[in-house]
Design a protein around this nucleic acid. Structure first.
Length: 567
RNA sequence: GGCCCCGUAGCUCAGCUGGAUAGAGCAACGGUUUCCUAAACCGUAGGUCAUCAGUUCAAAUCUGAUCGGGGUCACCA
């Protein structure tokens, strides 16, 4: 049951035997690195640090070390310049890795780090009466991937869709509906008509500022429980949720909670009272604030001059509520980078209130998506509709199937898996914080570093297994020493460490990049080596194909991307 | 202006805790299919890692400044 860490430990011990007077185990472990090219071995020890104490050139030290070390556990050890390069016994390593993957199955790469701690994840959070845009997609798919990743390492994620279902915009919407809307229009196409009213409201309010006052007045009515306002609000909310659900179904994402902003309406007073009791609240320019100058932050605005609550008031209530409900190990907020300041304020206020658990609140920011270099704005109608993008991607996938694999059964289902997979993968493959300008052509690409490329790699692996007609024998020969297969085997062994890194950095792209690298090495192997030939390593090769497919599927599953067996 | 993020090939980006000739994909050009799906594979071409200074045996990677792009800076969320 060897894995990466054990091998590294073995190498550290080998080196320590010769370096006991100079370096301890930890120091050697720190220095040990993985060479860029596997031609240079699997692990390398740089000797520069010994140059001073030994008063020798690093090259000489490397050669001297090679002569001293125990070569037995390795294929070979070589001095190359200032480095001591270790080459692992390929057959033995392959056998250990493949056996590991088979024994653990879908649990390969699992960890118990989380000890079942709750991790609420604030994600997606679309606004009622507005269509979901590419921006909401980011929060949705990053949050979903993090939930999967955290579940894999032993946490208990709780996916919370913090709907934007409260605020002045509803007053505006009610006004707009009264003036220009109709029940029939909304029933026919809820979101696009509600959006139409909303956009028109903002256009007309430019000329007629009194509209804004009317909007505020209607929102006030809503807050005071006016029956008509409440009825309209409930109606808009219900229709919007139904529309959102269609998109979530297509994306294959479920939530544990839809407690949006409105849910916290009656939970803010205790927070405000608590702030008062702790002498944190102070009047300023007619409003109520918490001063944060000592934290080098702008003041947190708790109540407007007209007494209404604000975003942070609600978030304080939500954070507190989540803490009492879940006693979370961590509380994640997958929200755009432009709100970094807000979360700093949120944590700072909680800390002032004595809530030390605020340290466990983690804002997971992501970069801005622009269109033609400009920020997307619902009000200005400058949006990229997620639904359209998904439609486009699925259509294109259908065309590809018709051209490349016309006899494919379940073509429609596969087109959905591939099209949606492409969109999700595209959003997850880059560093979260990178901003990018939206390009439909780029999002629906199926070649190169894309989701479909990974899916295709897996589909080919599945195809081989079908042709073979049987599974690899787990008790049989798993010792594959073909150099062409070596990179694939090494990447397979790296999966558990990769999952941990993705979790540590709150970075799904780590998994996406891993899936791409594994696909690439596998495709290279596939293109140059014949797998289904009857010789003494057939079983080992089949095992490699099966293990690769298994890990690719795992990686895709973590990202929330489906893996068709044929495409 | 203060604070935050970013600046690597024509374009989109990798580069983990500093280490051996800076890597992919797309686009361009050329090649591979009687053989497990060519949504693939191989090759050619393409870079003063924004600039300058510092720390170090070693800097794309760490520190500071400068330039450039984006975000944000109280009654939106």
């Amino acid at each position: 049951m060897e894995d990466n860490m054990d091998i590294k430990t073995t190498i550290v011990n080998t080196l320590h035997a010769a370096l006991a007077d100079e370096l301890d185990h930890d120091q050697i472990n720190e220095l040990l690195e993985v060479p860029k090219s596997s031609k240079l071995g699997d692990y390398a020890f740089p000797t520069f640090v010994l140059a001073k104490t030994r008063h020798q050139a690093p090259q000489q030290i490397a050669q001297a070390l090679v002569a001293e070390l125990d070569h037995a556990p390795y294929e070979k050890i070589e001095a190359n310049g200032a480095y001591v390069n270790f080459f692992l016994d390929k057959g033995e390593f392959a056998e250990a890795t493949l056996a590991d993957i088979f024994n653990e199955g879908d649990h390969y790469g699992d960890a118990t780090l989380g000890e079942n701690g709750n991790v609420p994840i604030d994600m997606s959070s679309p606004n009622i009466a507005k269509p979901m845009s590419m921006g909401h997609l980011r929060s949705t798919v990053i949050g979903n991937a993090l939930a999967n990743i955290y579940a894999k390492i032993g946490y208990h994620p709780i996916k919370i869709n913090y709907l934007g279902d409260w605020g002045t915009q509803f007053g505006k919407l009610i006004v707009a509906y009264h003036k220009w809307g109709s029940e029939a229009e909304i029933k026919a196409d809820p979101i696009s008509n509600l959006l139409k009213y909303y956009v028109r409201f903002h256009a007309e309010a430019e000329k007629d500022p009194e509209l804004d006052d009317e909007g505020r007045a209607w929102f006030k009515k809503l807050e005071d429980g006016d029956p008509e306002a409440t009825h309209l609000w409930e109606w808009f909310r219900r229709l919007s949720l139904a529309e959102f659900q269609k998109i979530y179904d297509r994306l294959g994402i479920q939530f544990d909670s839809f407690n949006g902003e409105a849910y916290y309406n009656d939970k803010m007073d205790p927070i405000v009272d608590d702030l008062k009791a702790k002498n944190l609240l102070q009047p300023s320019r007619g409003a109520q604030i918490v001063d944060l100058t000592d934290e080098n932050l702008t003041p947190a605005l708790i109540k407007r001059s007209d007494g209404a609550t604000l975003y942070i008031t609600r978030d304080l209530a939500a954070a507190t509520d989540r803490y009492h409900q879940f006693h979370f190990a961590k509380s994640l907020y997958v929200v755009g980078n432009e709100q970094t300041e807000h979360f700093k304020q949120l944590k700072a206020v909680l800390k002032k209130m004595g809530d030390d658990w605020a340290d466990d609140i983690i804002h997971v920011p992501f970069g801005l998506i622009t269109k033609d270099g400009k920020k997307l704005s619902t009000r200005k109608g400058n949006v990229v509709l997620l639904e359209k993008v998904l439609d486009e991607a699925v259509d294109l996938a259908k065309q590809q199937i018709a051209a490349k694999n016309p006899d494919l059964p379940n073509a429609d289902q596969v087109a959905h898996q591939v099209g949606v997979g492409a969109v999700i993968f595209h959003d997850l493959k880059n560093d979260r914080l990178d901003s990018f300008d939206f390009s439909l052509a780029e999002v629906v690409r199926f070649e190169g570093e894309t989701g479909p490329y990974v899916q295709y790699s897996n589909a080919r692996a599945q195809s081989i297994l079908r042709k073979a007609g049987h599974h690899a024998d787990r008790q049989g020969n798993l010792t594959i020493d073909d150099p062409a297969a070596w990179d694939t085997i090494k990447f397979l062994a790296e999966f558990p460490a990769t999952v941990l890194r993705a979790a540590r950095e709150y970075e799904p792209s780590v998994i996406a990049k891993y899936a791409l690298r594994l696909s690439k090495t596998f495709n290279k192997y596939y293109a140059n080596s014949k797998i289904l030939v009857a010789d003494d390593q057939l079983n080992a090769r089949l095992a490699l194909v099966e293990a690769t497919s298994q890990v690719l599927q795992q990686a895709l599953a973590l990202l929330g991307v489906q893996a068709p067996e044929e495409m």
